[in-house]
Simulated assay, not measured.
Amino acid sequence: MTGPRTPIREEPSREWEHYNLWVNVKEALYNLPYQFHTDTYIEGVSLTDLPTLSPAVGTTIEQQLVDNLNQIRSVWDPEGRYSEYAFIRQAQTFPDVLLTKSGGGDITPILGIELKTWYLLAKEKEPNFRFCATKEACAPADLVVIVPWLLSQVISGRPKLLKPFVENARYVAAWRNYYWEHTRQTEDDRGIIVPEDVRPYPRKSDAINDRPVSDRGKNFGRIARTGIMEEYIEEIYNERIAGIEIRHWLRFVKIFSEGRTREEIEQEFERFEREIEQGRYGKNEGKIESVWMILTGLRRLIWEESGTDS
């Protein structure tokens, strides 16, 4: 007896009239970190408040990403065939973004994007975004896109975007359910209640989410926990800011959020500084100077917040 089949990625047919557009849109999404520009600038925010602030900043970034997609039309519509179409953000409706004709009405969108941001220095080491839409609510061309970001100077600056996670929405929905029903470690009921008569591009009032029979930990839909993003997350944490891998910045910032004593935090500062002097993070003088500036600002923020020894 064979076990359940692993989900297979379903992509639009190459015969689909909008296939080349779909390919170009994916290319545009991967280009967003290089094309993205924003006037948002953050400084003077405490380390403990940054994660609290990140949802509001993330929402702003999501809207700006939609604006940026429309501004780089030449990437996804180089021949001008879709001049009447634009990316439009929907409020509290799945998916978040539609590529459709202005005016909406009964016009069927060409594709949809469930678009979320991920603040890399949040307390959780993985995106906590939930994706619960049932597979049949997703059209073959629909995408799930998660865009990681952090501040350009780690604790201050403009939001800096990194390579996004881009995946077929139907595949994500199928993989989520496969994980929930077959591969996760649990003794609870693995069943999922799937809504009926669901079609792509639903109305706001439509019930389109799959629901677990049992979910005591409220974890259903957390796609980062299903393994589908594992390689991608590892790749992102290998990216460098000011010459240092993001995983090391995360380790360092986390120390303060764990409620360590001032002495313990100072020891970590000294350890980090020794590693820099020993060339562990490279020997580029410009990058090393940037790291020292960030550490100085970080130290000042920490001591301003803590005041005295714990």
Rank of each mutant, 00 (worst) to 15 (best):
T2F: 05
G3I: 10
P7N: 07
W16R: 12
W16K: 12
N20D: 12
V23C: 09
K26T: 10
E27S: 11
Y30E: 05
N31F: 10
L32W: 01
Q35A: 15
F36L: 01
T38N: 09
D39N: 14
Y41K: 13
I42Q: 09
S46P: 11
S46I: 08
T48Q: 15
T48Y: 01
P51Q: 12
S54G: 02
T59F: 08
T60W: 09
T60R: 13
T60V: 10
E62H: 11
Q63C: 12
D67K: 06
L69E: 01
I72G: 02
V75R: 00
R81Q: 11
R81C: 10
E84Y: 04
A86F: 01
A91Y: 11
Q92P: 00
T93S: 14
F94D: 11
P95G: 11
D96Q: 08
D96C: 01
K101C: 02
G104M: 12
G105H: 01
I107Y: 14
T108I: 14
I110R: 08
I110E: 02
G112N: 01
G112V: 00
I113L: 13
K116I: 10
L121C: 03
E126Y: 15
A133F: 02
E136N: 08
W149F: 14
W149I: 01
S152I: 03
S156Q: 12
E167F: 02
Y171Q: 03
V172P: 01
A173R: 03
A174E: 09
Y178H: 07
Y179N: 05
W180D: 13
E181M: 15
E181S: 11
H182N: 15
Q185H: 07
T186C: 08
D188S: 14
G191P: 10
I193W: 05
E196M: 04
V198W: 07
R199Y: 03
S205M: 13
I208R: 03
D210W: 05
D215R: 09
G217P: 01
K218T: 02
K218Q: 15
K218S: 12
N219A: 08
G221Q: 06
E230I: 03
E231D: 12
E231S: 09
E231A: 03
E231C: 04
Y232R: 06
I233H: 04
I233R: 07
I236G: 03
I236L: 07
R240E: 08
F252H: 02
K254T: 15
F256I: 14
I265A: 05
F269W: 06
R274K: 08
E277N: 13
Q278Y: 12
G282V: 06
E285C: 09
G286R: 13
W292C: 06
I294Y: 05
I302H: 04
E304Y: 07
E304C: 03
E305D: 15
D309Y: 09
S310T: 07
